[in-house]
Design a protein around this nucleic acid. Structure first.
Lengths: 160, 160
DNA sequence: GACTTAAATGGAGTAGAATGGATTAACGAA
DNA sequence: TTCGTTAATCCATTCTACTCCATTTAAGTC
């Protein structure tokens, strides 16, 4: 079974928690357990990675930081990835509590409908409205790219 | 669990003290105890590091300074970081008193709302207004970068 | 040097929210 | 139809944040 694929509609409960569907729950279990990392995406959703995956992704960033703590640029990097990230644990009942600041940033209010999207290395949570916006954007981009590829193919008879 | 991540809204009490949220408190405990170092950042907030972390960051600077203590530049550096830095202790109730000059420099008035930001090696305290300014800056940058990536993907049919 | 006043510090109590668990209802499969 | 699994609601316990108060410390004045 391919891990972290597909979509699910779920809803945020009154206390700002979401319940994982059994499939994603199993995927997390296979990827190292209940320790996860949430990341507030600039494009509008929350990404959830297994902790192991996250650590692999940002290896070595820290060592550098402690050496050059005096640099403003280095501090900015630490500040922004630190601010947008939070580690969590999947509860015994398969629930994840979304941190307050992410609820606000990403429109994931209590009692609202959201979409869980498998992204192969983890999942993402989007508010329903923002998700359809994002889908539109990706479809338009993909169509546009297709058009351009066709046009470019016409221009160059030798290709392919 | 990863230490010093995420954001929290807190408020400065009438006497210029802030209370750490339980998460950050635990992070400090794990990083060596209640001894901390405050540093007034030139970009507008107050950084709080565990003492051990701070010492590690400053070690090289100190060694250098003791070798060339006669240099004017070196004295200036020491003077500046000395002036902007103060060591403190987290109280039994998890509170930190912000030194007067930092309150003024960073807009952290008594009874005002502030944000505590995890920066992976410690935390930072920002006044709410300044923090949202900083966030805006980052979001605009990130959006701009995203747009350019999409545009560049359209321009080059071979990519991906 | 002593007294008065102000400020800082440490602590406790309470209202509210978050957390974890349990129960019940609904859906799907055998 | 029945059993098993999943989802949603509800409740109780725990924890946390906020406010208020008491004690100590410092500073200024007579």
């Amino acid at each position: 079974m391919l891990p972290f694929f597909g979509q699910e509609k779920v809803s945020v409960d009154a206390n700002g928690r979401v319940k994982l569907c059994p499939r994603f729950l199993a995927d997390f279990k296979d990827s190292g357990g209940w320790d996860i990392v949430l990341f507030s995406l600039p494009e509008g959703g929350v990404a959830i990675y297994p902790e192991k995956t996250f650590l692999r992704m940002r290896r070595s960033e820290l060592d550098e930081a402690e050496k050059s703590g005096g640099s403003v640029l280095q501090r900015r990097r630490l500040r922004f990835s630190g601010a947008m990230t939070q580690s969590e644990k999947i509860s015994n009942q398969g629930r994840i509590t979304i941190p307050h600041f992410m609820r606000e940033d990403c429109g994931l209010a209590p009692n609202s409908d959201v979409v869980m999207v498998g992204i192969q290395i983890g999942i993402e949570i989007w508010s329903s409205e923002r998700w359809s916006g994002e889908l539109d954007k990706m479809r338009r981009h993909s169509n546009e790219k297709g058009e351009r590829e066709m046009a470019s193919d016409l221009m160059d008879p030798r290709r392919e």
